[in-house]
């Protein structure tokens, strides 16, 4: 005769399977299932046993989700996405031809301090207009920036393969390489007296490499962080 036997909640089990690291996944899932079947069902009854399993599942998942490497990875991805959104907005603003006299008249377009754009509330108030307008992928492509970024990423990768940098050194070096065109552009603005027409391509070269390199460098750092955690 087939006796009906209550099982642990399927979704909770799937959640545990998905979130727990592989080295403890089977141990913890097996222990909880055994405890559920052998003790909790008889001690508490079906409904309370299922509630107990959910409680254990949430407590365990929270513990393993809130580990420092996972939080740092999440923070790195979050910061990178924010940075990419802000940079995309600035590039689209420049290529869209939106005539906002207040922003266009600002001195940072000609003195190299382009980052000040991101501190202008007027710029952020144009967000819907900028992202709502027509734009093409070509706005984000600049041959000089592509070449620089590809070369820089290759150099970073080769150096990392050779010296196997610690994660902090890798991030430091990555940031230096990523910000190099910005510093270069700033120096050019300080040394030369550029007209607004000449400033455009230089500003694109200051910002676009950051856009191209932020993702790969973030990915590399997270990979390093995970490897570092595994070997600890």
């Amino acid at each position: 005769m087939n006796e009906f036997k209550p099982q642990p909640p399927r979704i909770a089990s799937m959640l545990l399977q998905g979130i727990l690291p592989h080295n403890v996944r089977d141990d913890i899932c097996g222990d909880l299932e055994e405890e559920f079947n052998r003790y909790i069902l008889t001690e508490k009854g079906v409904v309370r046993a299922k509630i107990w399993f959910w409680g254990q599942c949430l407590k365990t998942c929270t513990r393993y989700l809130m580990t420092t490497p996972r939080l740092l990875s999440f923070l790195a991805i979050f910061m990178t996405v924010l940075m990419l959104a802000a940079l995309s907005m600035s590039i689209l603003f420049m290529s869209s031809g939106i005539d906002d006299e207040y922003i266009i008249s600002q001195s940072f377009w000609l003195n190299g301090r382009v980052h000040q754009l991101f501190f202008e509330p007027a710029f952020w108030s144009l967000a819907s207009e900028i992202f709502g307008g027509d734009f093409t992928l070509a706005s984000f492509i600049d041959v000089r920036s592509v070449l620089f970024s590809m070369t820089a990423l290759c150099v970073l990768r080769r150096l990392d393969n050779k010296f196997d940098y610690h994660i902090t050194n890798y991030i430091g070096l990555g940031l230096c390489i990523m910000l190099a065109p910005y510093v270069y552009g700033y120096v050019i603005f300080q040394v030369n007296d550029l007209a607004l027409k000449q400033a455009g391509p230089l500003i694109a070269f200051m910002l676009l490499p950051i856009m191209y390199m932020a993702g790969p460098i973030c990915f590399g750092a997270i990979k390093k962080l995970n490897r570092h955690t595994r070997f600890q």
């Binding site: 141990d27 899932c29 097996g30 299932e33």
Partner: peptide, 11 residues
């Protein structure tokens, strides 16, 4: 591994 552990081995 036992059936009541969902076929998972003990540690």
């Amino acid at each position: 591994a036992t059936p009541e552990r969902g076929g998972k081995a003990k540690r």
